[in-house]
Nucleic acid binder design. Structure first.
Lengths: 337, 337
DNA sequence: CGAATTAATGAAAACGTTTTCAAAATGTCA
DNA sequence: TGACATTTTGAAAACGTTTTCATTAATTCG
């Protein structure tokens, strides 16, 4: 690859001038500008991003870091895609990291990304109280949280109203006459699941029902297999639920399998409501009622926030809370027993 | 972040010595080694990858480039995850790029990745005859093709036997008595689709059936929506097919929707076989018969090939062809009319 | 017309590493 | 003991940029 030096030689100017042409061409004579531009053309010059990044202090590295639990979770693929599209428009590239919800890996990648001098890091924090990320922010690295919050920390954040999402799901089931409603959720260390569960409980309480701990199951959010087991336990309860709310797309999948295994019919024997409107949700039979969250759009907003912060490191932090929607399909129906 | 210089000062040695401790500690006195190690500990030293990459010629940048059509296609998420897992073990990070099957974007990202001095690039080429990628290989950049081949080029490649996959799908349908079998495929510019279609045609010919062009529909492989339209056209044919073979997971989804829309029952009214065994394939009703390809494993193998090539740039290129499998479920059944 | 701006350019330092080369200290051997 | 090999260390160059500072040429102004 051609370097500044070669271009300079080819155009008969100093590298300083060539550099100026790249950055602030206002300060260079139109004629030399011409000449340099041509030389760049002829040599097919591409600036070396590594050298650029080494030289410039910050905010010009053209690289973003992104740490997600698992790219195989389609919800995160959507977020990633949203981020990547915005980054592409800004001529940025994205380093993708999978943490597997493992704080060790999260820390590892955080270090890598810092040592890569990325301009900023976007992530759903594994622990809403985790101090590694908080320290990172203190150190001045631009950080945007997406999907999950970081508690008690001033940081740009894009989430949906998870509590409302949980509330909507349960309220819908209640309105159909269900009274024993189970939830497949996950550890409260994740702000999203904690909030969805809170919505679930609030809806029950608001309708004068009490919380039955037996109907609340916490699973590994990455594993539909684990969800399947938990769902099986629920279905085998002596007083089994008439409806189950699964709080993310993988758990929904596990739930669906468990229902199939037990030979139950949706929605006649049991109603099912999921979280995340995945492409397959309307291809399954019966099509699934779900709480929808706009993953792609969340990714876009997060990236936009990031670029705003890079442009102005001291601007006030903002919290964007997007609205969940409920998509009524056929996996939920009236309960009369 | 602490630098070599600071560590050197703190340990009372030169930066050369510290650098040696990092790389080839054999050549440094055990006592100084101790001292330097401690200094690194105390300052929490992390080498600056950017500086490392700028300095070292090649093969040490600890960065891999990855260009895929779209991370939202779950098949590619699996590949990406396989690659990332291997990279993680080697202390490598991955830059992820989405090309949208757009040669312009592919070219753009290829340039970016070169200018980032990545150690190698893994991708399914958009055009099996495309010259951009071929030139890249000529230039000495380590390249591994995954999922799709680059025709007439000596390059490390990991694919499945797509022709066999197509053949298996159709043979299965034939064995069930189907005679009018349609295929939802895509442009032959993609080696994978061209081969799957070839397998489809071969199977028909081997059973003395002739190819009916009306039953072959080429769609945009990224769009289940487009596949849905094409599937609708097929279903509305005066002599409609009794079975449809969809050659990737997104097209399968579109096909499923079209069947639903037309009020047809799978497999009684029509048999459906898909490509790619996605997590939802066994959660849908009825569970889907599919040709399975091991995406995650393909990603791993591709990454392994890449690291072998980085270690030894002149080793002979290898082509890995993995075996597709058929997963019999309930979306295909005997046809007797 | 001479002084003072302004415009256009380049030399050199810096970013944080690795690597080459040389120097100093130590050990070995006849 | 002296020549030579080995071990241990550091100074300085290099990677490809950006940026500071200085220099020269051209322009403006009183």
């Amino acid at each position: 690859m051609a370097t500044l030096k070669e271009v300079a030689k080819h155009a008969g100017v100093s590298i300083t001038t060539v550099s100026r042409v790249m950055n602030d061409s206002s300060k260079v004579n139109p004629e030399t500008l011409q000449r340099v531009r041509r030389a760049m053309q002829e040599l097919g010059y591409q600036p070396n991003r590594v050298a650029q990044r080494l030289r410039t202090t910050s905010g010009q590295s053209k690289l973003l870091g992104l740490i997600i639990p698992d790219i195989q979770n389609q919800f995160y693929s959507s977020i990633v895609r949203g981020i990547e599209d915005v980054a592409y428009d800004k001529n940025y590239a994205v380093i993708l990291c999978n943490s597997d919800e493992d704080p060790g890996k999260e820390k590892f990648y955080l270090d890598v990304l810092q040592s890569e001098s990325v301009d900023g890091i976007i992530l759903p924090p594994i622990h809403q109280h985790g101090k590694v990320v908080k320290e990172l922010i203190k150190s001045g690295m631009p950080v945007v949280c997406v999907d999950r919050k970081l508690s008690r920390e001033r940081v740009d954040t894009v989430v949906i109203n998870n509590e409302k999402g949980g509330y909507m799901a349960v309220e819908h089931l209640l309105s159909l006459g269900h009274r024993r409603i189970a939830i497949l959720t996950s550890s409260p260390q994740f702000s999203s699941f904690e909030e969805r569960q809170r919505g679930y409980e609030q809806a029950l309480r608001d309708h004068g029902l009490e919380i039955d701990e037996k109907l609340i199951r916490e699973g590994d959010p990455r594993s539909s297999e684990h969800a399947r087991q938990l769902a099986n336990e629920l279905l085998e309860l002596e007083r089994a639920p008439s409806a189950i709310f699964a709080t993310n797309n993988l758990m929904t999948l596990g739930l669906l399998e468990a229902v199939n295994e037990n030979g139950l019919q949706i929605p006649d024997d049991i109603s099912v409501i999921g979280f995340d409107d995945m492409p397959w949700a309307r291809a399954v039979t019966p099509p699934l009622t779900v709480i929808r969250q706009p993953g792609y759009e969340m990714g876009r907003r997060a990236a936009e926030l990031m670029f705003q912060r890079i442009a102005d490191p001291r601007r006030e932090q903002v919290q964007i809370m997007m609205e969940p929607g409920i998509v009524l399909r056929e996996s939920t129906s009236r309960w009369v027993k």
